[in-house]
């Protein structure tokens, strides 16, 4: 997880105490993902348990400093050298919503897409305004903030583009008669075996493979 590695990378610059680490993380990420002190100490505990940091001196004000170990330093190098693989993008929530909506009768899917697109564009407009209010970054902190804002802008853009694409894809599919809603295929109980209650039937089917439909893993990816 990136908080763990981010804190470790900061500690690689020298020993810090918990509250100090929080401030360092904040100013290096444009104050976009504020961490609470509890998260910081939890992370430090786990890093210590894994041998990546060790408790160092305590200063006169009682601050406990944490110092990185050799293993911790290696971990930082490994993190910086390897790409981040996005397995679960946040957009999946939207992809799943759209995929489900396509299979339901009586849903105006074009409207679902349009409502989402207008909302995503509004986000994009807000981010662009924020960015437009500042000129070229004039410090490392501002640069860090700008990188984060840009990343959000490009993510919102990707979402809008994906919605445009989905709209066209859907129009093509319905023109060819492939966008019909899916009726339930798992609801009919097995012949000859009376079913007492609905939950029991569902539990019995829980282990079975998912029915064929647009919501295969490929569709969501």
């Amino acid at each position: 997880m990136s908080i763990r590695q981010s804190l470790l990378a900061i500690l690689d610059q020298g020993p810090c105490y918990g509250y100090q680490l929080r401030g360092e993380f904040d100013r290096r990420t444009g104050s976009t993902w504020p961490l609470n002190v509890g998260q910081i100490y939890n992370t430090l505990d786990r890093l210590e348990r894994d041998g990546l940091v060790a408790k160092a001196d305590t200063d006169s004000e009682g601050h406990v400093y944490y110092a990185i170990t050799d293993a911790g330093h290696d971990e930082v190098t490994r993190w910086l050298d390897s790409p981040v693989i996005r397995t679960q993008a946040t957009r999946d929530e939207l992809a799943i919503k759209l995929a489900i909506a396509v299979t339901l009768p009586g849903v105006n899917i074009a409207e679902v897409i349009q409502v989402q697109r207008a909302a995503s564009l509004r986000t994009l407009q807000d981010l662009t305004r924020t960015k437009n209010a500042t000129s070229e970054p004039e410090s490392a902190e501002e640069l860090a903030w700008m990188l984060v804002v840009d990343s959000m802008i490009f993510a919102a853009e990707a979402e809008v583009r994906w919605l445009d694409h989905s709209e066209t894809r859907l129009a093509r599919a319905s023109a060819r008669g492939f966008a019909e809603p899916l009726p339930l295929s798992t609801s009919s109980p097995k012949r000859g075996r009376p079913v007492k209650a609905e939950p029991a039937a569902q539990a019995a089917q829980a282990g079975q493979p998912a029915p064929a439909g647009p919501l295969t893993t490929d569709a969501v990816r």
Binding site: Q114, R117, A118, S120, L121, L124, N132, A156, E157, D164
Partner: peptide, 15 residues
């Protein structure tokens, strides 16, 4: 524009 990132500079987006 077809580019959402550019449309976002506008005060209003009309579809």
């Amino acid at each position: 524009t077809h580019d959402p990132r550019h449309a976002a500079w506008a005060d209003r987006v009309v579809f």
